[in-house]
Write a protein that binds this DNA or RNA. Structure first.
Lengths: 227, 227
DNA sequence: TTCTGTGAAAGGGTTCACAGCT
DNA sequence: AGCTGTGAACCCTTTCACAGAA
C-alpha cells in the first residue's frame, strides 16, 4: 500500500465526486468522437456539459496530464484514458436479482450491453418465475446465488426486488462476494464499506423537483408562441 | 406568499443539496410510520440513513422547528411537514414523451402513481405507435404536445426518447411551459435556468462503481463461508 | 437527563489566476 | 496567442459543541 512519492502525491485519494463525473465526460467524448471532432478544449467540453472549464481540468489532473497546451485534448485519446481509469475497457458480467415487471424491463434494456454491462444470470424467489426464460436468460432460485456468482466470477449485481426484501437480498449478495450493487428498490441499503451501492430512484428525483414547482404560478396558457 | 420576518432570515435560499435529501427523509419516515414508530430522534433516523444526526437537524432547521427537545421528532407530523415542503400533498400530472421499450416500462411502473405522480398523456413521433393504447393511455403525436400540455396543465414531463432526439424534444417541452423534466436519455440537456432537470442513468451509476472494482482483486472463490 | 436547534469551526470542493508549454 | 495544469483563494457543506427546552 505505497503512498505519496516525493514528487507528486497524485492519485493519493481521489474524491468520489470526481469519479462520478468521469462517466459524463466519457459519454460526451464518445458523442464528440461520433461527430468526428478530433480535439476539444476544456472550454468547449465545459460549454457542452454546463460545467466550468477549470473543473474539467482539475478533475482530469487527478489522473494525469492528458491535454496539450494551446490546443486542448485529443478526443479519442482522452476517451480511451478515461475508459481505462473507470475500468470500461472490458466487459462486466452482472447478476440480476428480482424478475418482476422492473426486472424484466431491465433484462430487455439495451443500454447496459451497449456499454459493456452484461446480465449473465437472473434470480427470483417466486417459484412461478423460477425456471422461466427471459431474453434468453434462465431465471434461477435465489438459493443458487452463491454457486452461480462464484462460478461466473460476478462482481456486480442489480437489485430489482420489492423494498421489503431488498436488504435481505443485499446481505446475501454481499456474503457471496458481490462488490457493487445497483439498487432499484426505494430503500437505503446497509452494506460494508468496501461494497459500493448506487441508487436508481426516479421518484426521489421527481420529489426534489416538485419542491421548486410548488411555489411556481400554475402554468396555464402559452401566452405568446415566441418561437 | 410572505417572506423574511424581522427576526429570522430562514427560507432565504435553501441549498439544492438539502432539497435533494428531503425525499430520502420522507421515504424513511413513511417506513417508520408503517412500523408504527411514533417518535424518532435525529440519532435514530441518522443511523437508519447512514448520515450524521447533525446533518438531519441542520437540514430540517432550514424549514422550521419540527422537533421536541429531549424527545425527538413526531414521525407522522414531520412526514407531513416534509411532504408539504416538497409539494407532495397533491397529485402531479405528467406527460411521457417516447413510448419505446423504456417508455412502455415507465407506463407500467407502479412506483410513480403510488407516490402521487400520474402519467396522463403519452407522446411519440413514430406513426406506428401513435393511436395505440398502453396501460389505458392513448399515444398521441408529439405535434399535439402544446395543446395537451396546456389543456391538462402539465408541469412535469418524462423524456424517454433516443439520445439523438432528446434535446429537440426537451426544447419543445420547454416551449410548452413544462417546468420539470425527468430525463432518461443519456445526454446532458440544455434548458433555461427556471426549468429543472434530473437524470436517471443506471449506466453512469455502474460506470462510477467499476472504477472501484477494477483495482480490486478479482473475487473468485468464497474462501470461508463465515455466515 | 435527553435531544433539539444553531452559531462557530472544520473540512471539501470549486473557481481563480497565472506560470509554462505549444 | 491559446490553452493546460495547478497552487491559492474562495465558497459551500458538514460537523462540532453547547445553550436551552422538555
Amino acid at each position: 500500500m505505497r503512498e505519496r512519492d516525493a514528487a507528486k502525491p497524485r492519485r493519493d485519494q481521489i474524491p468520489e465526486i470526481v469519479i462520478n463525473r468521469l462517466p459524463i465526460y466519457a459519454r460526451t467524448l464518445a458523442y464528440l468522437e461520433e461527430e468526428h471532432v478530433e480535439v476539444v478544449s476544456s472550454l468547449e467540453l465545459g460549454a457542452r456539459l454546463r460545467v466550468t472549464p477549470a473543473q474539467i481540468r482539475k478533475d482530469l489532473s487527478y489522473f494525469g496530464e492528458f491535454g496539450k497546451q494551446g490546443t486542448g485534448y485529443n478526443v479519442k485519446y482522452l476517451l480511451g484514458e478515461i475508459r481505462q481509469i473507470l475500468g470500461l475497457d472490458r466487459e462486466w458480467r452482472m447478476a440480476l436479482v428480482g424478475v418482476g415487471h422492473l426486472g424484466r424491463a431491465i433484462l430487455a434494456y439495451r443500454g447496459f450491453i451497449d456499454q459493456g454491462f452484461r446480465v449473465v444470470a437472473a434470480f427470483d424467489n417466486d417459484t412461478a418465475r423460477i425456471g422461466s426464460h427471459i431474453q434468453g436468460i434462465s431465471v434461477r432460485d435465489v438459493a443458487e446465488l452463491p454457486q452461480v456468482i462464484a462460478r461466473e466470477g460476478i462482481q456486480i449485481a442489480i437489485l430489482a426486488v420489492p423494498a421489503s426484501e431488498a436488504q435481505a437480498q443485499a446481505d446475501t449478495l454481499v456474503k457471496c462476494g458481490v462488490k457493487a450493487i445497483l439498487n432499484y428498490a426505494p430503500v437505503n441499503l446497509h452494506v460494508p464499506p468496501e461494497v459500493k451501492v448506487r441508487h436508481v430512484d426516479p421518484v426521489v428525483a421527481l420529489q426534489a423537483m416538485t419542491y421548486h414547482l410548488k411555489s411556481l404560478p400554475r402554468e396555464v396558457g402559452l401566452e405568446a408562441g415566441s418561437g
